[in-house]
Amino acid sequence: MTAVTGTPHTVDTHARTVDTHPRTVDTHARELAAQRVPFVHARVVRAQAPSSAHPGDEAIVYGDGRIEGFVGGVCAEESVRTAALGALRGDGPLLLRVLPEGDEDFPDTPGAQVVVNPCLSGGALEIFLEPVLPPPLIEIAGRTPIAEACVALADVLGYATARSLPEGPPAEHTGAVVVAGHGRGDTESLRAALDAGVPHIELVASRRRGAALLDELGLTEAERVRIHSPAGLDIGARTPAEIALSILAEIVESVRSVGAPSSVGHDDRPVQAVDPVCGMTVTVRPDTSHLAVGEEELWFCGPGCRDRYAAGLAS
C-alpha cells in the first residue's frame, strides 16, 4: 500500500482541476496523488496470447469502480475491478492472476491471487494492483505553541496538515481538526469543521472553558460526539509537546479504529452482485450489463453472459 506524502506534509487547500486532454496513465496517477484522490494503479506484468492486453498496459481504478486505461477485455477488466476495490479498502497491494477456465499452461507465481474467469476467450494475465492512498489529513487551527507542536508531530508520523481555519473552511478530505487557538477563532473553527462533516475534532481548552464554549454553540447530540474536549488522551501531559503527543495519540486511535480518512468512505462502496451465468463477482455501475427478470434485477460481467442468460429464458 502506497501512502502519498509531500515534503513538507502541507496540503494546498486550493481546488485544482485535472484536464481531460490525453495523457499517460502514469502522469494522471501523479496528478491524482497530488490531489489526495485514492486509487489503485493496475499494471499488466505478464500476458499470454491470445490475451488482448500486453505487459506494460496499465490503468487507474477509482473507489467507485471506474477504470481509466486498459488492462484487458471486459471480463478481465471486471476481475481487476473487484480485486482493486478490495485492495483499496485494506487488502493492500497484490498480484492478480486472471486465468481462463481449464488453463494449466500459465506458469504459477507464488503469492498471487488467482481468479479463474470462465468468460475469457483465452490467454492469461498477471496484473499488479497497487493502492495509492493519501496519508490522513489533519487541519490545525491556531498559531499557539500547542498548535505548532501538533504540526511538527504530525509530520513525524507521516500525516499531512493544513492551516486554513478559521479564515476559511477545512481542506477537502480532512479527517481530523485540532482547534488550538486559545480563544482566537475557536468558535468559528469549530463551526466550520462541524459544517464540513469532519468526523474527529479536538478542542484544546480547559474542561470549564470547553464546556462553556460548546454550550454556546447549541450543538446537536450528533455534533457533540464529534468534538473531544479536553483534547487528547489523559497521559498527564504538561508541556506543549506532551499535549500535542496526547492529541495525536487520540487521533491515531480514531484513524486506526475506522480506517484512514480519505475520500473513500465506509458507506459509499459500490454494490456488487454475482453473475448467474459464470459466477463472477461484478461491480454494479451504470454501464454494467443487466437484465430485468420479473421483479428481479440481474447483473452480468458482460454482454456475452447477459445474452446467454436471456437466450435461455426464451428457449
Rank of each mutant, 00 (worst) to 15 (best):
L190K: 03
A260D: 11
G236H: 06
T109G: 03
D91H: 14
V116I: 13
C305R: 06
T161D: 01
R238A: 12
P100A: 10
P107D: 03
F39G: 02
P270S: 14
V11G: 01
E188P: 01
H173K: 12
R226W: 05
T144A: 04
G265C: 09
A49Q: 13
S254K: 15
Y159N: 03
P38G: 07
P135M: 04
L213A: 08
F128G: 02
R224V: 05
L203A: 05
L291D: 00
P110K: 11
G302Q: 02
S51Y: 00
A231Q: 04
R89I: 08
V71Y: 00
A149R: 10
T5W: 03
I60T: 04
T2L: 14
P270V: 12
E250A: 14
D91Y: 00
A222R: 15
P50Q: 09
P135G: 12
A76D: 01
T2Y: 07
V45H: 03
P286E: 07
L298S: 05
V198G: 00
S79Y: 02
H21G: 04
A192I: 05
V11P: 01
V61G: 03
D12Q: 10
E250Q: 15
T13C: 14
E297G: 08
E253S: 13
S263D: 12
S121Q: 12
R306C: 01
E172I: 12
R16V: 10
P22R: 13
G102R: 11
A124V: 06
S263F: 06
D234N: 10
V98P: 01
G6D: 04
G312M: 08
S51A: 14
V25M: 03
E202A: 14
D12T: 12
A222T: 12
T220H: 07
W299P: 00
A160L: 09
E167H: 14
A260R: 09
P230A: 10
V115M: 06
P166K: 13
V40L: 10
G232C: 09
T187V: 14
C278A: 08
M1W: 03
T220E: 08
F300R: 04
P199K: 11
L313V: 09
G69P: 02
G63V: 06
C75A: 15
R308M: 04
Y159D: 02
V71I: 08
A212P: 00
G210C: 10
A162V: 11
V198H: 06
G175L: 03
I247Y: 01
H182D: 09
G63D: 02
I138K: 05
H21S: 13
P136M: 04
V277S: 05
